[in-house]
Structure formats: C-alpha cells, structure tokens
Simulated assay, not measured.
Amino acid sequence: NRREEALDLGELYSTGFDVFPLSAEHGRGVDELLDAVAARLPEAAGEQPAEEDKTIHLAVLGRPNVGKSTLLNRLLGEERFVASASPGTTRDAVDEELVWKGRRYLLTDTAGLRKKRQVVDKVEVSSAQRALRTVERADVVVVLTDATQLGVDQDARIAAQAEERGRAVILAVNKWDLVRDKEGEAQRLREQAQRHLQHVGFAPLLFISALEGTRVHQILELAAELRDEASTRIPTPQLNEWVQAMQEEHPAPLFRGFPVRFSYAYQVGTQPVTIAIQCNRPQAVDDAYRRFLVNRLRERFELRVPVRLIFRQKSRSTPRGSAGAGR
C-alpha cells in the first residue's frame, strides 16, 4: 500500500492515456483494467447497431387528468391518444412514433398514478403497474403536473420512481394558460421544487400549455439533449483530474482516524452515467459525501441526468483501520 501511495503518476496522466496501476503477481488492479477493456470492446464483426438504439423513448407520467394525452396529441399534431376531462381515460401504456428535427421518438402515454391508498380498483392497480414498467424502457420521463391542482407529494413519488431507475427526468407544469400571475407563480413553483424534489433537483423545469401548444416542443429538444447526456462518455484523464481536485478542495471525512483516499476513476456505464472510483476505504464514504461528489460531478461536466458512483477497493490487501469492520 505504501508503495502504491508513493507512486507519482502525474506525468503518466498528463499524457492523456488511461493509466492502470496494477500488480500482475498479486492481482491488484486487474479487475479495474478488465472493466475498462470490456467497456471499450468494439461491436462484433458483421453486427450493426439496431435502428431502435437511436430512438428516444419518451414516457409521460403523472397524476390522473393532468393532460398527458392532450400533451402527446399536441406533440404529434393529431388526435392519436384519447383525451377526456374525466380522469382514468387511459388504462394502458400506448406508444406512438414521431420524427422531429431528424430525431426519432417513441412517445408513450400512461395511466394516471394516484396515491396507493386511493387505489382500490384492481384494473387501476394493474394500469399503474404497467405505467411504472414503461419507465424501465424509457430514456427520458416527463413528470407532468397541473398548475391549477398541484400534488407535490405524489409528483415527488413519481419523479423518484424514474430517478431510482436511472432515467432522465423533465418536470413539466401543464395548464400554464390558466395561470394569471405567471412570473410570481413560476418563482413559487421553483421554490417548491427545490424543497420537495431535491432528489431530481438537476432536472429541467418547464411551464407549458398542452392545450395552446406553449413550449411543448421544448420537451422534445430537452429529451434529445438529456438522452445524449445520459449516453455520454467522460474521458478518463478528465475524471481523474476532477477526483484529485475534489480530494484537495473537500476531502472525505476521516474513517476511525484514518484518511480516505481516491486513487483512480473511470466510467463503467451509461444511462445512467456510472463512475467507478478506486478507494482505500470504500465503506467509509457516507451518503452525504457521495451526494456532494455527485452534485460536483454534474456541475463539472454539465450533466442534468442521474449519476451513479461506485466505490471500489483499490487493492486486495486490507487497509489500516478496516479490521473488524464487519463485526
């Protein structure tokens, strides 16, 4: 461990190449090297990426009667989804394709989601389950709410379902045409979102009118941008520069009197963006510091999508201060 910590890899990192400190004899660092190799393997010979891989899957979720079907009809430019003033009109997830500005979209209308204690009909329970399953195959989830009947708690639960599954989120406040003091109401809603939707505080917030078409196509623009952000690959040298800067500016709290050090960072996945960080004491990184790093990572690389951090033991030897940790 002392030898590893004494290594000065600054010159190697500065070349712009990925650097993997390892010991073939003891197996140290080999797992990290294999992960990086697997992430960069090319497509098998003769295989072409499926066309649907380029399709942006956009699902619209929200409480009953917030205007989901009306919004999708407006985006499509025709009445393809059944829209009604009566809540519960949509019972199943319904898909429609759209090509807009050269990008292909698959738009999904879903059943309205009410609080669990309000759902007693078995058909509605099944519809809600199918609506949530659409999140699994979506790239971007629009959480649609009603400017005249806010349901902050339920909207927060719906947004949490999307974020937990690593999906990009757009918060859209519909029926904006019915709001009189638009500037004052917009400020109030932004403050509410900061208080009650902290787990998706990175998500864009739009004020729209599906009925009049106000700003509805910004949803498509944002969906394309967020899909691209969620699919981004961050160069390893830039990640390591960021990790070292975080250690210097705001180091992790001590663990039983011992420092927590990060030695290397690299990306292991997309949708959501997933970063692995080699660490001498992974168990010492608490939730608060993890959230701090995620927020700073989003700021540094301008991401408005979910991010996951994985902390891995940098070697197979046991660091000081961790003995008996599992007792």
Rank of each mutant, 00 (worst) to 15 (best):
E4A: 14
E5Q: 10
A6K: 13
L7T: 00
L7F: 12
D8H: 02
S14M: 02
G16S: 05
V19F: 06
F20N: 09
F20S: 05
P21I: 04
A24V: 15
R28E: 10
R28T: 03
D35A: 12
D35T: 00
A39E: 15
P49W: 04
E52I: 04
E52T: 12
E52G: 00
N73W: 02
L75H: 08
E78Q: 13
G88V: 06
T90N: 11
R91M: 08
R91K: 15
R103L: 07
T108F: 04
K116T: 10
R117N: 11
R117W: 12
R117T: 11
V119C: 10
K122N: 05
S126M: 12
R133D: 01
R137T: 14
T145I: 10
Q154I: 09
R157K: 10
Q161C: 10
Q161M: 05
E163S: 12
G166V: 11
A168N: 07
V169G: 07
A172H: 06
V173F: 15
W176E: 11
V179D: 02
K182S: 05
L197Y: 11
G201P: 03
F202Q: 05
P204I: 09
L206P: 03
I219T: 05
E241W: 00
Q247S: 13
P253T: 10
R256E: 13
R256P: 01
F258I: 00
F262E: 09
S263N: 02
Y264N: 12
Q267V: 12
Q278S: 15
C279W: 07
N280V: 10
P282K: 08
Q283K: 09
N295L: 02
N295E: 14
L297K: 02
L303F: 07
L303N: 09
R304Y: 06
R304W: 03
V305F: 09
P306S: 04
R308Q: 10
R308I: 02
R312P: 03
R316I: 01
S317T: 09
T318W: 03
A323T: 10
R327M: 04
